[in-house]
Each structure stands twice: as C-alpha cells, then as structure tokens.
C-alpha cells in the first residue's frame, strides 16, 4: 500500500507542475507595467509635519535606535521656544532595508513610509537623504496628531494649557 501511495504521490506532483506550466504567469512586466502599491506599502521614508505646520520630528533618536541597519542618524537641538527638533537628519537609503521599524518606533508619527518605491540611483551619495529631502509639507497618515499638544512641556500651548493638564500649581498656595 505504501508503495502505491508513494507512486501516486509522486505522480501527482508531476501532474501539478505540468498543469501549472500551462497557466498564465502572474508576473507584472515592470517597468512597462507599473503597480500602484497599497497605502501601507513600505517604501521611501518621509518626515511629516503636524496639523499646525510644525515639524513633527523631535529628534528623539528612537528611529535610529530601532533601525537594524543603522541608516538613520541625526542631531537634536533646542529651538528658542523649547521645541526639540532635528538639527540635521539623515537617512542613508543605500543601507535602508525598508523594514518599517523606524515608523513603528516613532512616538510623534513624524517618520512615515510612502509607496514611492522607485528610488534607484547610480550615485550612492544621491541616496543619502538630508532633512530637506525628507521633510514634506503634509501630515501624512495621522492628520490630527500633534505631539506637543499632549507632551506637557509647554511648546505649542503654555505650560499646563493642554487638554489633559491642570493649570500650573502654586507651591505657596495653602488651599487644599
């Protein structure tokens, strides 16, 4: 019985491959045919802005820490109003593997991936993107989120002025 099952199993395999040979291939003939990826496709990385127009990136280094290939580097700095921002921000797309861990790590929804997958180039240096190349004038996928409206360090709203905050406490107040 085993022998028969074995022979049958083998023959079936041959039949399947033979049959498949005559089906239409699923290949898309890039670059003549192009495919529109889904919105959550992971390709070229951008830095988005918050709904108030400010840079979302606070240069917290979480994306560079999450990046398994170390392609993100930056330097944080402090603006006059106390806002933390990236003095420079660099993504080396020659190294990037488009794994999306940076976007998952981003606490401010600043770094996002787009579906623009055509970023091949002959000069590796052209694939080293600086902040000017990365920053877009759009909120991207989470249009309403502004980190500084929740952070509670008083950059967008005065201290204690966010929705989930009490006004600043007075230490000399003796009232209960």
């Amino acid at each position: 019985m085993n022998l028969i099952r074995g022979i049958k199993g083998t023959a079936q395999a041959y039949w399947i491959t033979l049959r498949t040979m005559f089906r239409k291939p699923v290949t898309i003939q890039y670059p003549e045919q192009k495919r529109q990826p889904f919105p959550r496709y992971r390709a070229r990385i951008v830095l988005t802005r918050d709904p108030d127009g400010g840079e979302r990136c606070v240069a917290c280094y979480l994306c560079s820490a999450a990046c398994p290939v170390d392609c993100i580097s930056m330097q944080a700095a402090e603006a006059k109003d106390g806002r933390r921002y990236a003095e420079w921000f660099r993504i080396n797309f020659t190294r990037c593997i488009f794994c999306g861990l940076c976007t998952e790590a981003c606490p401010t929804r600043a770094i996002q991936m787009t579906s623009d997958y055509e970023i091949c180039n002959r000069d590796p240096l052209d694939l080293v993107y600086e902040k000017t190349d990365l920053l877009i004038d759009d909120t991207g996928k989470d249009p309403d989120y502004n980190f500084y409206r929740h952070a509670g360090i008083g950059v967008v709203n005065p201290r204690g002025g966010n929705e989930d905050e009490k006004p600043p406490a007075d230490v000399r107040d003796l009232l209960p």
């Binding site: 498949t20 089906r23 239409k24 291939p25 699923v26």
Partner: peptide, 10 residues
C-alpha cells in the same frame, strides 16, 4: 523558462 512557467513566471 520551463521552471519559470512551472512557478507562474515567464
């Protein structure tokens, strides 16, 4: 080419 066709490729 044959292997390609067997795997739904060209």
């Amino acid at each position: 080419k044959l292997l390609g066709r067997m795997q739904l490729r060209y």
